[in-house]
Nucleic acid binder design. Structure first.
Lengths: 124, 124
DNA sequence: CCGCTTTGCTAAACATGTTAATTAAATTAC
DNA sequence: GTAATTTAATTAACATGTTTAGCAAAGCGG
């Protein structure tokens, strides 16, 4: 089990749940379509993950008052605590990967992946 | 749906099934642990994929005669035909991605991903 | 020769990715 | 004002990734 996954399993969240929580905590209140975009997830996958996070009482969902097609998602106190408890360690693990690879090469990898992503999109 | 996935769905195989078929066709007769290694798949995932390919009669599996823990996997005639029917088109699609990105950048991306993979392995 | 360890593969269970379809709500066009 | 279209989210179904556990077979050490 990877180091981040192992750390998160102690707080009973998966990597994808963590990524979604991070987006909600940093940019909330936020709508699901925007979370999906930010977290690079398809909506059906996100819906299921949000349902799990709601069940675990880490987020709160409510209907938008102006446009009732939409939802507003916010972090719950328990979710904020979980992030506070794990953020430093997860940043450190990511920094460890970046340092072992070398910051320049790490950035180059991210750039190339984004470029590939752009190629995928434009060929559809 | 991505171009390769779309093409393959006409032959009723998924991308992962295709990748496994390719390994079996190129390196068969071959054992599952080696397929898993070559195709970057975990064994339980591979076992299920092989079961599907066997069900579709695209491969044949039999017990190794010397070491009965092991299996030998071979391409079946229908599997060879499916590969023959799709190989040129899939290579062309991959070449299209490489050309749009530029061969140097494409190779750089593969190198950096392999390097990252090495970092993952050594930190466990 | 026997008990223990290792290896190869499978099964179960859960999470997530994906596609297609559906429902409800808003917008647009006439 | 109404019908058609678009948008936001969900559901269903299937495939696959992952972890854990289990079983059978082979290898190793004493």
């Amino acid at each position: 089990m990877g180091p981040i996954r192992s750390m998160l399993s102690k707080s009973d969240v998966t990597e994808q749940q963590w990524r979604v929580l991070r987006v909600v905590e940093e940019e909330g209140p936020i709508e699901p379509t925007r979370i999906a975009d930010q977290a690079c997830l398809l909506l059906p996958s996100l819906t299921r993950i949000l349902q799990k996070l709601e069940e675990k009482q880490l987020i709160v969902r409510e209907r938008d008052k102006v446009d009732r097609r939409k939802q507003v998602v916010q972090i719950a106190p328990a979710g904020a605590e979980l992030i506070a408890a794990n953020l430093a360690a997860s940043v450190e693990l990511m920094n460890g990967v970046r340092d072992r690879m070398g910051p320049d090469r790490y950035e180059a990898l991210l750039d190339l992946l984004n470029e590939l992503d752009g190629i995928d999109d434009s060929s559809r």
